[in-house]
Amino acid sequence: MKKVTIFFLLLIFVLTAFVSVSQLFVVPKGWPKPNYDFSKNPLSKEKIELGRALFYDPILSRDNSISCASCHNPYNAFANANHQLSLGIEDKTGSRNAPVLVNLAWEKKFMWDGAINHLDMQSLFPITHPDEMGEQLDHVISKLKGSTIYPRLFYKAYQDSIVTGEHLLKAIAQFMLTLVSSNSKYDSVMRHQAVFSNQEKNGYQLFKKNCNSCHTEPLFTNHEFENNGLPINKILKDFGRMKVTGLAIDSLKFKVPTLRNIQYSSPYMHDGRFTRLQDVLKHYTLGIQKSSTLSQKIQQSIVLTSNERVDIIAFLLTLSDNSFILNPSFNFAKHNLYQ
């Protein structure tokens, strides 16, 4: 009898733990397994809240002027709409365009060239980069220790008010892991809750034929590094993935970005060279530059009439997810800091 009670108590305990975690992060139906190992950084409401507070706090920059959100704006699917190249402290210009932060739990490598190998480690880059937040790590830690809110938020999250690098990084990663976008019109159509217009349907067919090999459904990326035929920018001289691996075969390869919420994340490409989707389509049909590392997938030219290009754009707009852009739990929440 006693044994049975203990068994059921345990079962209930395990089940409730499972339910509360799975509510914080849900794998949309039909999607692959996330790449992020949640067992090493189990999500909790308090940790996500801490991560969110840090994401929106300029305390992470040297002169307390720039937060992660300065370059990753929630209303642009966490990309940056204002600058082709990101703008850091003291108006310093970086060398790349800030990408969207969407469905990061499925990503394997981070940055346009994959220089960062794990989502936890991502924050180290902007915090210490002289053209971004320009801070020293030990100084960030001591500022957080001395602040009036963070020791309490760290305590709520980790039952330990001591601010450590590990906890700082993991909390920011937790917030970013929650940024899942899976409620676009495209998703509704896939769930048979909506239908494409004829134009969108045609665009979808053309997309599957010409774009899906790299921008693969349902995440709209194959997580690979590819050369999509952009001519090199003569001033930036950015060779992409080669910088990380040192291998000539990686020259001009960049991470295939997701196209979810592409409507909100102009300008486009690693250097923000295109402002409109029609410019992007023009590139794929007329502008592809041949080189030894050009992806096999586009060795054959993409041929699209101007109407077909318009149809593809109509399809791309079905990847916009309003509930993601306007999700209140992704925005800055000052009131939460003082609870």
């Binding site: 950084n41 989502l119 690098g165 990663a173």
Partner: peptide
């Protein structure tokens, strides 16, 4: 990913 103690990436022994 991020680890603590001697492996904490803020110990100055991690490339950012």
């Amino acid at each position: 990913g991020a680890m603590g103690g001697d492996l904490d990436p803020t110990n100055g022994m991690y490339w950012t």
